[in-house]
Write a protein that binds this DNA or RNA. Sequence first.
DNA 1: GATACTTTTTAAATTTTTTTAAAAAGTATT
DNA 2: AATACTTTTTAAAAAAATTTAAAAAGTATC
Lengths: 398, 398
Amino acid sequence: MEIKTKTDRQSGLTDKVLKHFYFNDELSCAEVSEHLDKSIPLVAKSIAELVVEGFVVEQGYAQSSGGRRPLKYSIKADALYLVAVAMDQLSVRIGLFDLLNKPVVDVQSFELKLLNNDEALKMLIKYINKYIAASGIAKEKIAGIGIGMPGFINISEGINYTYLDAGGQNLREYIGEATDLPVFIDNDSSLIALAEQRFGAAKAQKEVMVINLGWGIGLGMIINGKLFRGHDGFAGELSHIPLSEDGALCSCGKQGCLEAEASMLAVAEKAIAGIKEGKISSLKHIIEDPNKLAGDAIMDAANNGDHFAIDLLSDAGYKIGKALAILTHIMNPQTIVLSGRGARVGKILLAPIQQAMNKYCIPRLVSNTRLKVSELGFDAELVGAAVLVMENYNKEKV
Amino acid sequence: MEIKTKTDRQSGLTDKVLKHFYFNDELSCAEVSEHLDKSIPLVAKSIAELVVEGFVVEQGYAQSSGGRRPLKYSIKADALYLVAVAMDQLSVRIGLFDLLNKPVVDVQSFELKLLNNDEALKMLIKYINKYIAASGIAKEKIAGIGIGMPGFINISEGINYTYLDAGGQNLREYIGEATDLPVFIDNDSSLIALAEQRFGAAKAQKEVMVINLGWGIGLGMIINGKLFRGHDGFAGELSHIPLSEDGALCSCGKQGCLEAEASMLAVAEKAIAGIKEGKISSLKHIIEDPNKLAGDAIMDAANNGDHFAIDLLSDAGYKIGKALAILTHIMNPQTIVLSGRGARVGKILLAPIQQAMNKYCIPRLVSNTRLKVSELGFDAELVGAAVLVMENYNKEKV
DNA sequence: GATACTTTTTAAATTTTTTTAAAAAGTATT
DNA sequence: AATACTTTTTAAAAAAATTTAAAAAGTATC
């Protein structure tokens, strides 16, 4: 039998109000009531509670719109702190943010190879614990740890099927016990989408597709205003759809995958091959570098006008555009956001992507879909990890 | 300002209970309370009201599962009637169903070409009015008319951008005024999906993709248990995604669309071309027939073992499978249902579709997705249209 | 510059919903 | 066969949420 205690029920709305203040700026009681579709007396009570407990502060009276001036409230930045962890195949970034998503301590980066690395999980936990300890922030003030990571992740089971094996144990709980804080994990691309829909280029929109341009190509989907993960948590596998019959062999074993043709890693490989063939470019030095740095070097070069780099990215963009045409046909999103590591060459990618979409999409569909470059850029995954913590936060249940 | 009247609020739950009985078989008060997550006294009141008003009837006591025997209730079949209209590009079917979705009057078919036919809307209304009048059912007992139709449809605006122009007026309201009944319209493939998720092969499932195999190839999407239509109502345009670089020219102006390669119309054209080239087949006579009949003839022949027909369908199936591989990568559905007119050759299509999905899908994704053939078959769109009426029905607001 | 009409907030009254308690009608077990 | 424990339903009590009314503090307009 399910037992709901008194506080359970009451705190439901208060938590929602708290989160509403986290996701929004200054708000009056009337506005919150309107947004949450709850009566004013009820919302007023919750806000009063939050003010007493120090989560929310009065911000004074705002302009009247024809009546009594509304008393505005906003979230109290230092009421809680959020630990955000953003991983990719090769590295980890850790940050600690306040409730305005401002970094309290500098974000730190560590090398951490996930593939075939039995030590990865142990190292990850060590880095996180060290970082939190060094920050000087008391654990009681930390709402939790949000972690974005690559791989096939089952949220409800708390398992990453691809990386970071915790011996079959619930990965989320495992890290939670090792850090003594509430932990929430999700796929990196999903968190990037969450960030863009909450604080980025697609704020408050309901149907949003976010492309995570990185060493691979990920997709985070927002459907009906919420993260969509599919029946088993594997939705958004855009990078392995069959795009062409031939083409480069992909790490997944198939041919013609988008990832094998247009990811930063694929672009880097093409750059190295091209230079070896004698292409003129400021990129000559990258031959010696490992692929990761090569990717960054290509993006730098392209932003500095290097023709060869721009050509390579345009090529990749066109292929991405073809995939986005398919995605648009199926999902009819309001906005597609180019985000992640590659967002900083978003402007260069935009034109070839749009061109491909124009060619491969039914006119009615392209004309309704807005293509945008992220402003959050490389920070998106960290922001998304912070958002994840806050979305799951429970005031009473600490 | 939004004003909620007393009856508005109270009837909210009662309507939900009524719909729950429509979508389910026999239920006890305790079960409804559980499903709807509302307290038993509240549900009991609603059920009592529905019994008094003749929407629901007691069905006696069921077996006890260890306590007092539950008093079961069920929907009263003749409490209301639903008019369902299923259209495709060339014809209209009209049916009248009771609340058990049993036909009360025979379903009738009419020829009705939608493309470039200014008279289509007028004819449609005439057919509907005639059918209802002939049925002998009083309009007060009819909950409404549900209409499934091809084309780009905006539900909220009530407009079909492709067919049945009502002079820019709200098509839904226009037909409503002309028939003097509540009217609800939706895309044919969406209604087929609705039918499969409510009464068909994917009953009560949350992530379902339904393929509408007909003269074209449509897709109806169920996401999180509800019909998904995309931001502008155009989601599910699977049939025009770029599948191959070359291939037949599609009516949409592009090349390599699934529809131009694998729809029944495309198969029929290939059959005619093949027979002209001298292929041996029981299909020889179809050369003289218009394409629509040819499509039916091919399906009949295939079901009777005709090798040429089976080869043609297998070819089409393989291409459909490739598209479903893409769809599965993006959506990670629990079930894909092959439905619509072509469902009766579903068994023949199943193998090549599965084969293509195995080839083009990441193993983890295919192995989690169940591929099924509809049992509703050609009736799916009619059932979906009836469901649409019931989903929108308001007891008080007639 | 008073009057009429806003919007926001607070307080009181009502309504709605849920919880608790009790009754009815079973099953399982000693 | 009697006792203990179920589940379902009905009735009464308690709690929660909304509506209504009123107060506070504005804007617009004649």
